[in-house]
């Protein structure tokens, strides 16, 4: 890192800028956390204070009673995002490899097509998608949330992974080919092991995408409570008369906690993956 070469004032500048940036990004989370600790009464009446003595973990206990299926919603969220990620990667890896290495008709055109599809947000296509899923009798099943999720994430996945695979030296694959290895064998024993950092980066971004978009598909294509993911399930904290904000925030934070822990664990690979290929080995 070049940070050692900077003067003290430059360093202070860098850290200050980083702090402001992080504060901006993390502010909503900090506020969520504060809200989740405050009792409802306090929430509606008291003036803004950073800290107060009546802060407690009560909401984290009560939320399981207010919304009895909360545990299931959290599970559904992670399950759906994981299933979408796995299915997307199964499709994206061979497709990205084909785009990175093979010559075939309409290669550039279809790649452009994928990018064009990405321009449509899911929202524009909700009604046609609804009709498709209905005629396939998939409404109100996990598939109704998973399939559109996979479909919308494949294009980005292909674009991201393709550029990563293109950086793997072609001679490695030629050497394997000369030694008699088939395309699939080379993919399995040479390309994929070398692409692990890239696969983690792409897998992560697909997972985040899947987590974020499931809300839209869940509220449109599903009305079975047992299948609902957390973002949709959070609506149950909205009562007839009032909204239990503190419990809702507590539930949201609890829901993303396992995912955050997982990413924390992956972080070292993520950073390596994002900078890999910058330097030729």
């Amino acid at each position: 890192m070049l940070i050692e070469r900077l003067s003290i004032w430059q360093k202070i500048g860098v850290y200050a800028a980083t702090f402001v940036f992080l504060l901006f990004i993390l502010m909503p989370f900090i506020e969520m956390f504060r809200v989740s600790l405050r009792p409802m009464s306090h929430l509606m009446t008291a003036d803004f204070t950073w800290w107060s003595d009546d802060f407690s973990w009560q909401a984290y206990r009560d939320m399981w009673k207010t919304v009895p299926l909360l545990g299931l919603y959290i599970f559904n969220s992670i399950f759906i995002a994981t299933a979408v990620t796995v299915l997307t990667m199964v499709v994206v890896v061979p497709a990205a490899y084909a785009y990175a290495r093979l010559e075939f008709p309409f290669r550039a055109l279809s790649l452009g097509g994928f990018l064009a599809v990405n321009m449509f947000t899911g929202a524009v296509l909700l009604i046609p998608l609804y009709r498709v899923l209905r005629s396939l009798s998939l409404l109100n099943t996990y598939w109704a949330i998973i399939i559109p999720g996979v479909a919308f994430l494949i294009p980005t996945g292909i674009w991201l992974l393709r550029s990563y695979l293109e950086k793997i030296p072609r001679e490695l694959e030629e050497a394997a080919f000369v030694d008699g290895a088939s395309r699939m064998y080379t993919l399995r024993r040479v390309v994929i092991p070398l692409a692990v950092p890239g696969l983690i980066v792409v897998g992560t971004s697909v997972f985040i995408g899947a987590y974020a978009q499931q809300f839209l598909f869940a509220i449109t294509f599903n009305n079975v409570r047992e299948i609902q993911p957390l973002p949709a399930g959070l609506y149950e904290f909205v009562g007839y008369q009032d909204v239990t904000w503190n419990e809702m925030m507590a539930a949201a934070l609890t829901g993303v906690l396992p995912v955050m822990l997982f990413f924390l664990f992956l972080q070292k690979y993520l950073v390596a993956g994002l900078t890999a290929g910058a330097v030729k080995e």
Binding site: L172, E174, A175, F177, V178, D179, V190, L194
Partner: peptide
């Protein structure tokens, strides 16, 4: 195919699997 020709090749970059 290369393997059926009975040849083997050494590349300039060595092409070793890292």
């Amino acid at each position: 195919a290369p393997v059926d020709r009975g040849i083997s090749m050494v590349f300039q970059s060595y092409a070793l699997y890292p």
